[in-house]
Computed example of a mutant assay.
Amino acid sequence: LQEETLTQVEVTGGTLQASVIVNGSSKDQTIPAGSILRISIPIENAAQATYTDLALHLLLEDPSSVDWEHDALELDQAVRTDSTLTWTREEIEAFATLAPEGETVVDVTLPIRATTDQDLLTLSASISGIPEGRTARQTLSTTPLSIQFASNTELLSFARFFDASGSPLGSGPFPPRVDETTRLAVDWHILNRLHPLASVLVDATLPPEVQFAGAETANQGAMRYDATRRTLAWSIDTLEANADGRFFVELTPSAGDVGRSMRILGETILTARDTETGTTIRVTAEEITTQLTEDPFVTENGIVNE
């Protein structure tokens, strides 16, 4: 069979129509590494003639960023060869014959690796079929759509009584007791992958019943406590990869705290700018309580005792 090839932004004009839509948009976009790409390829026969024997190819330029073993991967029965996903009438029943005004859609879910050396994935689709009354296969292609990956940044925030070797960091009773002071360490860890970050700021607010006990340390940047606002801020001008910080807090439970765990630190928020994509990154860590779940050497719960 002869083949006729047309290329345009979205295939239109009295023939087959197709487009590539990623996470609800047909435009280039920037997303964090580790995200999920939900791809839809709607296909419509806008011609007056029926098309038969359709074939769809989705080309992924440099697919190494895709996690092909992820549980969320969904290829809608595609045949995968290297960087191309292919569907024919063997996989999609509607591809055998598509009448005028007929429509169908192919949906794909591609998980992106959280750690990847590639920061760009380009997607383009081609749809082909044989129009009624003709022998030449007509192939039409979409304009490539670029997905740029911003840094995948994580923020860990937790309290501990012991260090990694089991030696005490804190002091006082644990679980906490009424009218006695317990001192705990709070650790912040920033895990950054792919691109350097600029203007990194991590901050959180101490609850009224918790006192800042100082001894703040950080392997990058600087930590500062604002006693008036009761906020701790950690600023880093430029962050290439990971960073660690620690400070100490003290709490002295009252009789009204008996039988419950106490809040140690409110929600912690990290903001930064990806130096490659220019996008703003914002991640959060949940509030911390005296339930020291991240300290393997703490064997009791953090419920306040009398």
Results as ranks from 00 to 15, higher is better:
277 T>K: 00
108 V>L: 15
255 A>E: 12
186 V>N: 08
112 I>S: 11
7 T>A: 15
269 I>G: 00
11 V>R: 15
156 L>G: 09
169 L>Y: 04
1 L>H: 10
9 V>H: 09
302 G>K: 09
83 S>D: 15
264 I>F: 01
201 L>S: 14
161 F>C: 02
230 R>F: 12
144 P>D: 08
296 P>W: 01
63 P>F: 10
118 Q>T: 14
9 V>F: 12
12 T>I: 07
66 V>Q: 15
7 T>G: 15
74 E>A: 14
40 S>W: 03
75 L>N: 04
58 L>V: 12
294 E>F: 03
212 F>L: 10
292 L>S: 03
81 T>E: 15
178 V>E: 11
78 A>G: 11
195 H>W: 01
161 F>G: 04
245 G>L: 06
212 F>D: 08
188 W>K: 05
184 L>G: 01
49 A>E: 13
233 A>V: 10
140 L>Y: 08
7 T>H: 12
146 S>E: 13
56 L>C: 10
57 H>W: 08
73 L>K: 07
41 I>K: 03
213 A>E: 14
18 A>P: 01
266 G>N: 12
17 Q>A: 06
115 T>F: 02
279 T>S: 06
47 A>Q: 07
297 F>S: 01
41 I>Q: 11
122 T>W: 03
207 P>R: 11
96 A>S: 12
191 L>K: 02
10 E>G: 11
